[in-house]
Design a protein around this nucleic acid. Structure first.
Lengths: 221, 221
DNA sequence: TAGATTGTTAATCGATTAACAATC
DNA sequence: TAGATTGTTAATCGATTAACAATC
């Protein structure tokens, strides 16, 4: 059923639409056009319509999209209601940040534990898992998703995959081990490097300065 | 000098190469091939070579790239040595997270202050700025970059831009005001939604489950 | 009926890949 | 000279856009 194209550009945009629709619902907006969604993104209204073609059941020509059913169908399609069981691996600030993030409550990802050398703050954190217990825990608790805040050993990751893990979300500086293992095991994964985006922004700012606009040119007069 | 293509796909990849090269240097690797860089990414060696064509001075045919000068040139091109002056706007956990991030020490972004209702933890945080002081502060301290952890008022943002801000990096759930202002003022900006990537990963995991591989198919026998 | 809007098809554009030339 | 590797050109592929048909 899912077309191969679902794996690429479209799949990156659907979660954005999902978030935008949620905001619409929160603001009491129950009807919207493709143009209204597009205005909240970098894309065109035509692109939005194409992406949402799969959910045509929630659209009416001349009227637009019915936000409520569209939000539900989109969520189902994206798998947020599947309640994937997840473990955070690694110490550090982002750990607490992630634990408190509404995603885990709202979006059906069930945070089952935290795997780190040192036990985290017990008031906010779920079950603590020692690194040597990780594989056993994943198998017993049917964990399918690891969220990496620190690099994981290639062999440990391989064992975790054998124990049922099928997805990895990495926020690590160094993803070498993850890429290695992923090549051999066909798991799903994403690596995230927010600071790369910040640097790319800096570069754009720099280039923009080098190309003065009309008003800036005038200042040389 | 900069070609229009610099604004798009290439510019998103260059910061990745920059990070990978830094790791090479940290590991004492001073020579590398395009294939070795590509292995740390999702891209092909040919793509890497094309992207790095601008830095041909740091390459030798039959040998590869000279990591040290390439890292320096790439950093210069990306603007990380320009020491953009930045202010974090908004309360919350990511604030402390960002303050402690090595980026601000290592990559030449100078964090000048934090703008929020309540004063942050004074031990780790730089100057605290009250919201009504933001515009004055930006003008006086020549701030060019705002890092948004909470939505900013469209009019306040417009004033900040008039005061010299030319880039915005947003981690907010709702970017409506930012997009509005950006359309009229031609600032550079990036919006980041890590949870969108996590949801996209969930969807991929779900789709992968629906298409059993050979080994999984066997389990039905 | 007119206006608004989705859905569809063909054309365009940009990015990636493949093949190979150049050269250290 | 042979091997390794970058650099270049043309071909392919995928994604976006434009024009318009369909219909509520």
């Amino acid at each position: 059923m899912p077309k191969p194209s679902d794996r690429t550009a479209v799949l990156q945009r659907l979660p954005q639409y999902y978030r935008i629709l949620r905001r619409f619902l929160q603001n009491g907006i129950y009807r919207c056009s493709s143009a209204e969604i597009a205005a909240q993104t970098e894309y065109s209204a035509v692109a939005v319509r194409k992406d949402l073609l799969r959910f045509s059941g929630c659209a009416t020509k001349g009227y637009g999209y019915h936000v409520k059913p569209l939000y539900t169908m989109l969520g189902d399609y994206l798998g947020v209601r599947d309640a994937f069981r997840a473990v955070i691996v690694g110490d550090g600030m982002p750990q607490q940040l992630l634990c408190e993030h509404p995603l885990f409550a709202v979006h059906g990802i069930r945070l089952c534990g935290i795997c780190s050398e040192h036990a985290p703050n017990p008031t906010t954190a779920p079950t603590h898992i020692r690194p040597d217990e990780l594989v056993t825990f994943c198998r017993r608790e049917r964990v399918s998703l690891l969220i990496l805040l620190a690099p994981i050993d290639a062999s440990l990751l391989t064992e975790a995959i054998a124990a049922g893990v099928c997805g990895v979300f990495s926020l690590c500086e160094d993803d070498t081990a993850l890429r290695e293992v992923a090549q051999q095991t066909s798991i799903s994964y994403r690596t995230l490097h927010p600071m790369d985006d910040l640097i790319s922004l800096c570069c754009e700012m720099k280039l923009a300065q080098g190309e003065p606009t009309e008003s800036k040119k005038e200042s040389f007069l």
